[in-house]
Amino acid sequence: MSSSSSYIVLPGETVPAQHVNLKLGPGLLQVISEISESSIISTRAGTVNHSANKSKWWVESNSKRYIPAAQESVVGIVAGKSGLDGWRVDIGSAHFAILDGLAFEGASKRNKANLKVNSLVYARVSLAHKDMEPELECFDAQTRKSAGFGELKGGFLVRCSLQMCRQLLDPKHFLLPFLGSRFPLEVAVGTNGRVWISSKEVKQTIAMTRCIEAADPAGGAMDERALKSFFNTLDL
């Protein structure tokens, strides 16, 4: 996806992004001033990337604090009830997110989803506005099917950097296919620095946890070869 012309920017720098159908990703802002035309500036430090036809631009950087963005999948911890039929969910952002009790597959006024405090949910951010609390949903709003979202039972939660999460979502990244070739596993990757993992054996889950931490750019930062030899040192 990223082109060879990626370079580093600091917040406030002008980015030469121009296209008739320009789409700005995270870390970029359009500034409209009275004298000149609108220009694009960066709002965070990182490397600027753009798609092959230069219509989509974004800034890639690593952090631990999640800033919610609509349509992203996240792993949240239920922190408590909110109102009559909703939950407050901790997704690692500055504020709790609201998860409506009706935003589940097959939920109705009579038959609401039942979540315990401290349980894990895999959800999609349905609303992210800088002045409002984020909102989550556990179904596809059009089809009203769960589409893989919902409560996560059993397994374990790994916390990693945001960049690691995005890498895990990339189908071309080596880690998950490699682990999957060694033992059967289940994974739910949230973009908020949380990865839920599950496998049959405790040892396998621990091995997954350690591999994710070892491959994390903010941790061990191991590449494919180093990770494979690290995996072989683990006692399974």
Binding site: I77, N118, L120, F156, L157, W196, V202
Partner: peptide, 20 residues
Amino acid sequence: MRPPSPSLPEREFLLQALHQ
């Protein structure tokens, strides 16, 4: 904001692992 406590799966898995 109060720090969130660890989730139920984390607690269960940690205990299960420690028992092994």
